[in-house]
Design a protein around this nucleic acid. Structure first.
Lengths: 153, 153
DNA sequence: GTTGAAACAGAGACAGA
DNA sequence: TCTGTCTCTGTTTCAAC
């Protein structure tokens, strides 16, 4: 799908605030409301917009602790990789996970109620995934920025 | 603000799909539509829900490259810390940033059009922030999971 | 918690550039 | 094909009860 300048403006606005009305959105990008709506629909159909979600403040729901975890897996046990990926996907405390080059094989962002809860989660992780050679955790002291917004220029 | 079981159910659903109608939301949590609406409004007023956003697929807008960057700052130049934080906040390619204990002082998630674009961004980062002692970058090979959803149980 | 009125969203049909 | 207008139904929003 080829994105027009207008599509990109729509994406920019919707990444800032998805509760914006079609009328306001249309006005800001110089379209009629129905055209803006059709563009939006197309962007969703084509999976440029994957979904719309509410962003919840972790501190307000009892999860003030974040951890960054670098996991190093045993490379000679490839049959244990899919279970590890499934564990990552299915564990809601794992907010984000990337497989990377460099030191650690995988980096996880984890949200927890406390360091004790995190510790229990890390224990479960080690038990359920016997291919974890080691992992290093960094405690998040300050969250400077959090978001999934992508520049669209 | 004290969260009821119903509030938590609302948060769970809204984190999955914020385009859900009030009628459906109300039905799922066992409320009338107008009550569900007032709950939602309260959750937004109290900043439990920070905002609602569209999630855009980076690959569909020409940003297939992600990097994790660990930055180590000179500790004896505290006057350069606020400018660094401002740079992080104002640079849209930096999607997320945490100040951490452990090896690196700061960890950044960066989205880029290509490794060359990332390289140029890293150069600008070094030029604009003379307190960066060193940084290590990990190329993201696989994105297993991406999201900001918080478990609310 | 319910009702009701006005604004808004979503989807379809239609005509014009 | 993309845009704007029109139209209809269902939804949201907010005030009043």
């Amino acid at each position: 799908m080829t994105l027009t300048r207008t599509d990109r403006e729509i994406l920019k606005l919707m990444q800032q605030d998805a509760t914006i009305t079609l009328g306001v959105l249309a006005e800001r990008v110089g379209l009629s409301p129905s055209s803006a709506q059709r563009r939006l629909q197309k962007l969703r159909e084509e999976r440029v917009i994957l979904r719309d979600v509410s962003i919840v403040d972790p501190r307000k729901v009892g999860r003030p602790v974040s951890m960054l975890v670098e996991v190093e897996l045993e490379r000679d046990r490839p049959e244990l990789l899919p279970p590890f990926m499934r564990w990552v996907t299915e564990t809601p405390e794992v907010q984000e996970a990337w497989g990377t080059s460099g030191r650690g094989d995988y980096t996880l962002v984890i949200t927890a109620q406390s360091v004790e809860h995190f510790d229990a989660l890390a224990d479960r992780m080690m038990e359920l995934n016997r291919n974890i050679r080691k992992f290093t955790t960094s405690v998040v002291l300050k969250t400077l920025k959090r978001g999934l917004a992508v520049p669209v220029d």
